[in-house]
Design a protein around this nucleic acid. Sequence first.
DNA 1: TTGAAAGCGCTAACAT
DNA 2: ATGTTAGCGCTTTCAA
Lengths: 239, 239
Amino acid sequence: MKKKPPVALEPSSLKKLADYLGVSPATVSVVLRDVPGRSIPQATRDRIKAAAKKLNYQPSLLARALRNRRTSTIGVLVPELGDGYHTQMMSGVGNQLMNAGYFYFTAHHRHRKNLIEEYSQMLLGRGAEALIAIDSALEHSFPVPVVAIAGHRPIEGVTNVLLNHRRAAELTLTHLYSLGHRNIAFMRGQSFSSDSDERWRNLVQVAREMGISVKSDLIVQLNLDMQSPELGYPVVGFL
Amino acid sequence: MKKKPPVALEPSSLKKLADYLGVSPATVSVVLRDVPGRSIPQATRDRIKAAAKKLNYQPSLLARALRNRRTSTIGVLVPELGDGYHTQMMSGVGNQLMNAGYFYFTAHHRHRKNLIEEYSQMLLGRGAEALIAIDSALEHSFPVPVVAIAGHRPIEGVTNVLLNHRRAAELTLTHLYSLGHRNIAFMRGQSFSSDSDERWRNLVQVAREMGISVKSDLIVQLNLDMQSPELGYPVVGFL
DNA sequence: TTGAAAGCGCTAACAT
DNA sequence: ATGTTAGCGCTTTCAA
């Protein structure tokens, strides 16, 4: 079995390719994109495709985007990159995006207000046609479609995807209760994460309804600004 | 205190701005970028900057990139998005990149060979000026600088950043040994991750040197294709 | 001190 | 069946 040799050719441009072949750029463009409605002899088509492969032609998506006014790029705002929570959302988001033929720029802002603003502008400037903001405190609407996940507050024109914290509370507490537990400890999430308050409110509410008492000495507040499981070490006594 | 009203203006172009002001695009461009060497009256400068702010002008980084042949964009290849390991690297990478004024595209390939190839090409086509490949099985060199982290094999022109598995093994085993442990169990990483073999080799080697016996009934192999801590549940008996 | 013009790489409309 | 042209939004000579 012969090994494929390492490939590392200079990227050539459409025009060079056309010159090389003695045809017009338009023809090359049309052939390479399989645009219907233009009749071009199969021979020419083959010649062009072969040359493209041979010269390792890669269309400049940059130029194409400029010309088409379409970047096929989405901007993703996320508080942090290294954690398992937000990043797992990104994973799903990324999957769908790539399947749909989109690229995405990511920017993380660590919940810093000015960075949220700055980066969202940057993403737009860089050609993002829409924004997906995960747990990010957006402050105004945008000239492009925006979907917020766990958005901090409702914003005109921003679709906000929310967890059903009520249902979550019911599930958790019912589960523990059915196991026979009555002394339940609560870890409250960090205040900078938008879900924390809602989650807590619902937990307390559902607990009351179920007759589970929330004892103040069994409530601990997570404060560390980190996302790994270590976050919980101090309060559960590992440290 | 007055609330800032939501902002959502149409992005205007350099040319429109120039027309609006009755100056040439060149002048606007120069002023907005603070290009030295062109003497322009302060009054004009102020007028231009004010108008830019007022009309919410955002330069098209796309057009700029095309013109300058410089995208300030790096492509990042990663196996998976939702895990804590690779993503923590991405976090560091992302930080530095953003600090340095770079954007980055991310693509994840789940260790699928064809996707690795496809996406690296896409990233280049999209304007990436360099690639960072994390635990990705690259197969050839590239016309741009590439840094691999935990690269699967050495490739001409690709800088490979490797963990010192030997040292890691020494640290781990010494630690356990000093705690008095002699019966040590080993979990071998999934085979598709490039570090696994090296890590294992060194562990065995160091264990032998330290006189720690590696008992075959204390070796378990992780096989699940997932990255969360659940990965280890089966083998440690949680399930 | 400022403007006009060319051109980055591409595609769509309009010739031929 | 194919080529020519204009222009996406910007920057950079070169002129004025």
